[in-house]
């Protein structure tokens, strides 16, 4: 007879996974099909109505626009800057650790605290950004029409103008995030065997660009897949900054109404658990798709070593 001991080994882990991960997700899916509002005794089953709202209402259209704008600005820039910073630091003999620490500082700082600092910096009149810009008035910079307009009246309300808000927030996202990618890339770079560079040089790859194109970049493949995926997931998850800047409404004309904030606004601020759960499920679906793509890439394409 076969021993049942294996059940005792995998049982606790399985049970935990069900209780901590799967059951809450199932509850969220269940809630998303109802109109449950916190504090009510019961709830009505409404089918896919909540999802229909998400894909038809203009508010949620703004949510997707804001989320994708943020994600597609922040991911390429954090990955690019992260790689660039890692290559530069890797090529440094001295001071490498110092730069590493400097670039990594924003990652360690709590974003919500940093948001308050940025809020001061971006203050329309007394903030350091606009008061520095004002110093340039009356110089050659006024030849730039945008600058002249700012001098004439006021420089933009970086955080409260709907044409600027999402880009300002994205900028802070990049500032905060690229140090993390830099560290991941640095780890990737140290694992590249130096002999490969020697071999490449013998085969005629003498220029730095050739070495990067033929050795470094392909060997960083697995790291890149991981970095890109983690950057996507982290950008989809942006929340604390938005909540700190725009506690009500998600930015001017909802231009920074990212998904996580939408979940918070519906589910927590307005107690509408049904629609909040529905947005959560859509969010999970996005993250799931990204993870599946990552698995697929890792297994197929990136095994060089």
């Amino acid at each position: 007879m076969q021993s049942r001991a294996h059940l005792w080994f995998i049982g606790p882990a399985m049970a935990l996974m069900f209780i901590v991960l799967l059951i809450p997700i199932l509850i969220a899916v269940g809630l998303s099909l109802t109109d449950y509002s916190l504090g009510n005794q019961g709830a009505e089953f409404v089918g896919l109505e909540n999802y229909e709202r998400i894909f038809t209402r203009s508010t949620y259209e703004k949510m997707f626009v804001a989320t994708f704008r943020y994600v597609f600005v922040v991911v390429p820039l954090t990955v690019g800057l992260g790689l660039g910073a890692a290559l530069l630091i890797h090529s440094l003999g001295r001071f490498g650790d110092l730069y590493k620490t400097i670039y990594f500082l924003p990652v360690m700082a709590a974003l919500i605290a940093m948001a308050i600092v940025w809020e001061f910096a971006f203050h329309p009149t007394i903030g350091i950004i606009n008061s520095t810009l004002e110093k340039g008035c009356g110089t050659f910079l006024e030849a730039w029409p945008w600058y002249a307009k700012g001098c004439e009246r006021t420089f933009p309300l970086w955080l409260n103008d709907r044409d600027y808000a999402i880009w300002t927030v994205s900028f802070i996202g990049v500032w905060q995030g690229f140090g993390f990618n830099m560290v991941l890339y640095l780890a990737g770079l140290t694992s590249i065997p130096p002999q490969l560079y020697d071999a490449a040089e013998m085969d005629g790859a003498t220029r730095g660009w050739d070495r990067f194109r033929l050795v470094t970049w392909p060997l960083l493949g697995p790291t890149t897949v991981f970095v890109v995926t983690i950057s996507f997931i982290r950008s989809f998850q942006v929340f604390d900054m938005v909540e700190a800047f725009y506690p009500q409404g998600g930015g001017p004309s909802k231009s920074v109404f990212v998904m996580m904030f939408a979940i918070y606004e519906k589910g927590i601020q307005q107690n509408l658990m049904g629609i909040g759960a529905a947005i959560t499920v859509v969010f999970l679906a996005f993250v799931m798709v990204l993870t599946v793509i990552q698995r697929w890439l890792v297994e197929r394409r990136t095994h060089y070593v």
Binding site: K266, Q269, Q270, N271
Partner: peptide
Amino acid sequence: DNGLAATQVIYDGLEG
């Protein structure tokens, strides 16, 4: 139940 959500819709409209 949607009282708070209705207020938010008005807020968003006025901000627009």
